[in-house]
Each structure stands twice: as structure tokens, then as C-alpha cells.
Design a protein around this nucleic acid. Sequence first.
DNA 1: TAAAAAATAGGCAAATTTGCCTATTTTATT
DNA 2: AATAAAATAGGCAAATTTGCCTATTTTTTA
Lengths: 71, 71
Amino acid sequence: MEAFGNNLRRLRKEKGFTQEKLAFEIGIEISQISRIERGILNTSVSTANAISKALKVPIRELFDFDRDRLS
Amino acid sequence: MEAFGNNLRRLRKEKGFTQEKLAFEIGIEISQISRIERGILNTSVSTANAISKALKVPIRELFDFDRDRLS
DNA sequence: TAAAAAATAGGCAAATTTGCCTATTTTATT
DNA sequence: AATAAAATAGGCAAATTTGCCTATTTTTTA
């Protein structure tokens, strides 16, 4: 959950999206993006899918839960 | 959401899991598995991740939301 | 370094998900 | 066809997520 958030933040920045832009594109609240990135909440499969589509990143990259341990 | 459920059902069967076995392995209720497969609810990212690990299928396959349109 | 932009924080009510439960229906096995 | 196994249905309370909101802090830009 925390890893998901870290992946999201990294990928979002790589793609040049602000939280606001991403939130707007997928039609959710910016406060939700913030909470997801910070690992405060465990969002749904459909939001995860929408994020992956909006950022044009493979879903696998968001779910790469082990990546963080490396860095 | 519906597609996620269909993918789950197909993959679960391919791997020879009953709903009960899968539920037990990931520590959730069998009624939840049933509801997820039927597209009644939109489960969380962490449950999706646990399912992918338990079934040993890539997360991408669960999220292959467009697959259904083919069949 | 001042102003603007981006991100964080958190309160609150409504909506949704979850676990626990019992009962019924469908599918597979003998 | 009868029994057993698997899946569906749904009620209910507790827990969690969501949207909407305002305020504050941090980061970036001029």
C-alpha cells in the first residue's frame, strides 16, 4: 500500500503530471491522490486501473511492491 | 470491475483453486471472493496484489480489462 | 526572497467494502 | 438420481474510502 503510493508518485512525476492534473483526468479528488501516494489509504482496483491508463504506464509498474526495498 | 471479476474467475479455475481455498490463502472471506468475481464490488489494491501472489499470476492478467470484449 | 504553484493535513457526512453469518442454488461426483 | 462440493445470495454492523471543503506547509519559479 505504501509501495503502491511510492510507485505512483514516482511514475506520476516521471510523466510530468501534478496531483491536480492526474486527479482531474481520472475524475477523482486531489486529496485522494495525496492520500494514496502517502499510503494512507488502499484505493480500489478501478482507480488503480484509471491511474494506469491516465499515466500510460503498465499496471505492473504500480504494483511493483518490492521495488522500494532496493532504494 | 466486472472484467476484473471475470479474469479472476478464469485464472482461479485455471490454477485449480476453489473460492474457499483462495479466500483462505489470502485471509479474506469467501463471500468477498464471490462478490469480486461477480463484479458486485470493487476490491482494493492490496487484495488484488494478494490474489496475484496467491494464484501466481501476473497482476497485469487480472487487470486485462479489455480481454472480455474478445470473447 | 517574494509570489505562485504544488502538496499535505485533516474534519465530516455519505457511500462503499469488509467480515461474519445463515440459507439457498448450482455444479460435480459417485 | 442421490449425495457432496462449490458457488451464490443477502442481511447486518463495523470499518474504510470517497468527495467536498478549508487551512497550512513545502517546493518551485520569477
